[in-house]
């Protein structure tokens, strides 16, 4: 662990921990039509860790998740997930490798009830949670099961969006700003869920702007700016790096 201080100065370097790297993004470039939005992004996600991509609006965090899922086709570089190269692969094939995606806008289907939303994503691997387990994790969802998905409160929709990918057996989750616009009590609840998922072996990539929240759940943070990873800060060193962080995240 003494190595970590020097690790933080080499963004994207392989971690010193023994945990194997589950997801490795190297020199990722992405384009929206003519505009170049990711400029050589690199970072590693060790298996079983919660890793955040921290950065301002427009830094490229969401774009990065979309590249991983293959939803943004114009991408170059390398994205390896448990050894498989994802660049050039279609989104549905990528998902079937065991990735669960929870988009920023949550993506709850309006034409379906909460329960239909929960049951929608197909099982892609063994070992997913049962509906009962998900309801135990999110008791609110059970009460709202028959309501139209988009009639749920923001917090409930977020829980539904997370719960939905826990049924599928995906063991690596990409969560795009799950706490955005939610009340503190709900944010805490979602934080608890993330900690419980980590404890049961999930690997999680969390896109966040709220580093207070990020610091309560994550093992390490990658600071994203202008489509690049500027720095890696282990969670233990977060407070020592507060000034730097403020600078990066200041609006």
């Amino acid at each position: 662990m003494t190595l970590e201080a020097s690790e933080s100065e080499r963004p994207g370097a392989h971690p010193a921990d023994s945990a194997p790297v589950e997801l490795s993004v190297q020199d990722l470039h992405a384009y929206y039509g003519e505009s170049h939005v990711l400029h050589g992004m690199s970072f590693d996600v060790p298996r079983g860790e919660v890793v955040t991509l921290l950065g301002r609006n427009g830094a490229g965090k969401t774009t990065c998740l979309k590249c991983i899922m293959g939803l943004l086709r114009q991408r170059k570089g390398s994205i390896r997930f448990s050894g498989t190269e994802l660049i050039g692969m279609q989104p549905h094939r990528i998902a079937r490798l065991g990735l669960g995606f929870c988009p920023e806008e949550r993506g709850i289907y309006a034409s379906m009830t909460a329960e239909e939303n929960l049951l929608l994503p197909p099982k892609i691997q063994e070992g997913g949670m049962s509906v009962e387990e998900i309801y135990r994790l999110f008791p609110n969802l059970k009460e709202r099961a028959k309501s139209q998905g988009t009639k749920l409160s923001g917090g409930e929709q977020q829980m539904l969006a997370i719960g939905r990918i826990l049924r599928t057996g995906a063991k690596t989750l990409l969560l795009d700003e799950p706490t955005e616009g939610l009340a503190p009590v709900i944010v805490r609840q979602i934080g608890d869920i993330i900690k419980r998922l980590r404890a049961s072996g999930y690997t999680i990539v969390l896109v966040e702007q709220n580093f207070q929240f990020a610091s309560t759940v994550a093992d390490r943070h990658y600071i994203v700016e202008d489509g690049k990873v500027m720095e890696m800060i282990p969670n233990a060193d977060l407070h020592a790096n507060m000034d730097k962080l403020r600078e990066y995240l200041a609006v």
């Binding site: 939803l71 549905h92 998902a95 995606f101 289907y109 929608l120 197909p122």
Partner: peptide, 22 residues
Amino acid sequence: GSYLRAGTENPELLQAFGINVP
């Protein structure tokens, strides 16, 4: 049928769940 309804509403996300939308 539920995939069809979802595909009508948000095909991109449906594909990110592992459905071969094309």
